[in-house]
Amino acid sequence: MAQTIRPAGSRHPAGRPATGSLFATDGKPHRVQDVLMVVTGVLGVLAFVTAMFHHLHLISSWAGLIGILTGLYGQYISKTTWERFGLIMGIGASAVGFYLGMAHGGLFGGVIT
């Protein structure tokens, strides 16, 4: 909230210049968080797309479940707003794919009788 209110020319209390952007980064690399964000996004897209096909419910439900779990862990260790934004988008797509996959047959539908 403070990033959107603070004028772009003001200084950060630690002496760093304020960026005035919602997606401000701290200027440090966060490789683990970035990898988790990408993995969550890929799993989310996979789960969302395969959920549109009834016979692919195993892929959509498992990809959605793993995407939700990796996204939640990524949220736990995330450092910047950009990482949190990407993770939330991936978690949302994973959740939609997971729920539709569960509705179409679930995690073990047809495999275990």
Rank of each mutant, 00 (worst) to 15 (best):
Q75I: 11
T80H: 03
S78L: 04
H30M: 13
G20H: 09
T4I: 05
G106L: 05
V39Y: 04
Q75M: 15
P17I: 10
D26P: 01
E83A: 05
G101A: 04
Q33E: 14
G86K: 03
Q3F: 02
V38R: 01
V42N: 02
Y99G: 00
V96Q: 11
H30Y: 09
S60L: 09
F98H: 10
M102W: 02
S21R: 13
A103I: 13
T80K: 04
I5M: 10
M102Y: 02
V39Q: 09
H57T: 05
R11W: 14
M1T: 01
Q3K: 10
R16M: 02
M102F: 12
F108D: 06
V39F: 08
G92D: 03
F85E: 00
K79W: 02
L65T: 14
G74A: 04
L58D: 01
H104L: 07
T40Y: 02
H54N: 06
I5N: 10
L58P: 00
V32C: 07
L36Y: 07
H57S: 05
V45M: 14
R31I: 15
Y99A: 09
I91E: 07
M89P: 00
T81A: 07
A103S: 12
F98A: 08
H30N: 10
T25K: 08
A24Y: 01
A2G: 07
L58F: 03
H55W: 04
V45R: 08
F108K: 06
G97N: 09
G20N: 12
F53T: 11
A47F: 01
P13H: 13
I5C: 02
I66T: 15
A95P: 02
V39E: 09
G86H: 07
S61P: 11
T19G: 14
G67I: 07
G110P: 06
W82F: 01
G105L: 07
Q3V: 00
L72T: 10
